[in-house]
């Protein structure tokens, strides 16, 4: 794979030395980003299926059943008039009793215990309901009413994670740009450091593309070394993170299980970095030499 005895020995150049590190950093970040995106996709899916778009309204318990029914009706009216609310339904007392059974034991409802009322509210997609204002309005109608929006947070966390991903993608893009710039600068430096060897190659009949090939192959080598180091670093980091997460558990935590295609994508990162480096170096040399007379 490595260019044997190149005519232009670029690998010893000082400008070539930091290339693998820069490309390693790029691949490291990109691999973490890809893994993060995959994990987040899985988590977001599970969160979505469970609970998006619903809030629960808790109505304080009343001593009389008739009074409790009136309070729930009043709140239902209010909710159905609120723009952005797709549907509001009262959870029937039997359903509630069933929900509470594990804590209160069977027969809690028939025992005449005062139970709080519950209303399921389905929110329209992309609605911008001000839950604080809604909560205040409901509490005014029936003091003690509480709106539980924690399910919506899950959606917000996903959105936040998505914007973090966009930021990470931007950073990877910037590092990639810096890596390409470094390849270009190092090729230019190589052209000037090895001016004499390159002149000799020209004089014995070498084409510009032959000389560019020497630069391209060596950039490929350097980028592959850096790229695979970066990938191994990223895999080590992921292993460490999942080892740390073992103790936490819980379904809200992203899980990282990769399909064969996703593994292939991760392994392709250093190869892509190598190809980009080789092409950048090659183009730089062909263009620079082409400008000579």
């Amino acid at each position: 794979m490595f260019a044997r005895d190149p005519d232009v020995p670029l690998r010893r150049d000082t400008t070539s030395r930091f290339l693998p590190w820069l490309i390693g950093l790029m691949v490291y970040l990109a691999a973490l980003l890809v893994a993060g995106a995959i994990a987040l996709d899985g988590a977001a899916d599970r969160w979505d299926r469970a609970i998006t778009g619903t809030v629960t309204v808790q109505v304080p318990a009343a001593s009389e059943a008739a009074e409790a029914g009136r309070r729930v009706e009043a709140l239902l009216d209010l909710l159905r008039q609120t723009p952005g609310v797709a549907a509001a339904t009262a959870v029937p007392p039997e359903g509630l009793a069933k929900l509470l059974e594990p804590w209160l034991g069977p027969g809690a409802a028939s025992a005449g215990l005062p139970l709080p009322g519950l209303i399921d509210v389905r929110v329209e997609e992309r609605s911008r309901i001000d839950f604080a204002a809604l909560s205040a309005k409901l509490a005014e109608a029936v003091p003690g009413t509480a709106v539980d929006t924690h399910e919506l947070w899950a959606g917000r966390i996903v959105a936040l994670a998505r914007s973090l991903q966009a930021l990470a993608a931007l950073i990877v893009g910037l590092v990639a740009g810096a890596a390409v710039a470094a390849v270009v600068l190092s090729a230019r430096a190589g052209l000037s450091v090895h001016r004499e060897a390159i002149e000799l190659l020209h004089l014995i009949g070498a084409e510009d593309s032959y000389i560019a090939g020497q630069f391209g192959r060596q950039a490929l080598d350097l980028a592959l070394v850096g790229g695979f180091l970066g990938l191994f670093g990223a895999l080590a980091t992921l292993l460490f993170l999942s080892w740390m997460a073992r103790g936490i558990g819980g379904s809200l935590l992203p899980e990282l299980t990769l399909t064969a295609w996703q593994w292939a994508g991760l392994l392709a990162l250093p190869l892509v970095a190598g190809a980009v480096a080789a092409v950048s170096a090659w183009l730089t040399v062909v263009r620079t030499l082409g400008r000579m007379t």
Binding site: D7, A197, G205, E207, G290, T293
Partner: peptide, 25 residues
């Protein structure tokens, strides 16, 4: 043109005064 130089240069042998041998080969 520049692109036509290599084939012609291959038909000319040069012994340079300073040899111009590549030391890493």
């Amino acid at each position: 043109p520049r692109s036509k130089l290599p084939p012609l240069r291959r038909r000319i042998g040069v012994v340079f005064q300073d040899f111009r041998l590549l030391d890493h080969l």
